[in-house]
Write a protein that binds this DNA or RNA. Structure first.
Lengths: 122, 122
DNA sequence: CTGTATCCGAACCGATACTG
DNA sequence: CAGTATCGGTTCGGATACAG
């Protein structure tokens, strides 16, 4: 297991840094986490449903969904209806992000308390 | 332990989402992770040393360091030399980020393989 | 219904010069 | 030496109109 914080890392350290940047890059974007959350929790959604439920403009929604799809986190299925509809779903692979999300939830929660406590002492 | 991906979350889910956003916000910025890594691995550094080692313009460095300090991840110590020097160090608290960073390293590493494999099959 | 094109303002980052 | 002021380029996100 690579430790980004160890003093003895050389090439491992660079790889670790790159991996962190990769992760941040994938998750980067104002709506990605929220969209993933919706799709994982509520299951398949159509484009228009996402526009309404997440209150995102279609342009941004399209962009974020494409990026999520490129990263194998959501699938896009065109349904042969009339007019055409499109269904977006979270992939099973997207659940692998859980480990990261859990860590962020735990740290973020404690951090908020930490900052609040520090603010109280000033 | 809050699970962002569970279907039964209501208020917990919002809290979890907010915690994730908090974490992303703290780590957000082109250089924060790199700076933290330098300070944790190599110990205390002066402002000018960071400018050279990380190759950041002073304006951005100053901004990122202030944000890290606000989040209790680095300390700023003014030394009574002539001219004045300033030492930046990672706080013990910053090591609490390890859990998150480790998760991102692991996921980012596997994800790169995953995407490469998917690209090979097309 | 699903997107894209266009336009806009805001945020971000970098280079450089400058102040204390 | 440490940090800020100023300017400029690039990216980002939102609103709206429109095409397929």
């Amino acid at each position: 297991m690579v430790n980004l914080l160890q003093a003895d890392c050389k090439t491992d350290c660079k790889k670790a840094q790159a991996a962190v940047q990769d992760t941040l890059y994938v998750v980067n974007g104002k709506w990605k986490m929220g969209l993933l959350s919706i799709l994982i929790n509520s299951g398949t959604k159509r484009f228009g449903e996402l526009v309404r439920e997440a209150e995102i403009s279609p342009r941004i929604l399209s962009k974020e969904l494409q990026e999520l799809e490129m990263n194998l986190l959501v699938t896009r299925k065109v349904c042969d209806t009339k007019p055409v509809t499109v269904e977006y779903s979270a992939t099973p692979y997207s659940k692998s992000l859980m480990e990261v999300i859990d860590a962020m939830v735990r740290w973020g929660t404690r951090h908020r308390e930490m900052v609040a406590a520090a603010a109280a002492n000033s």
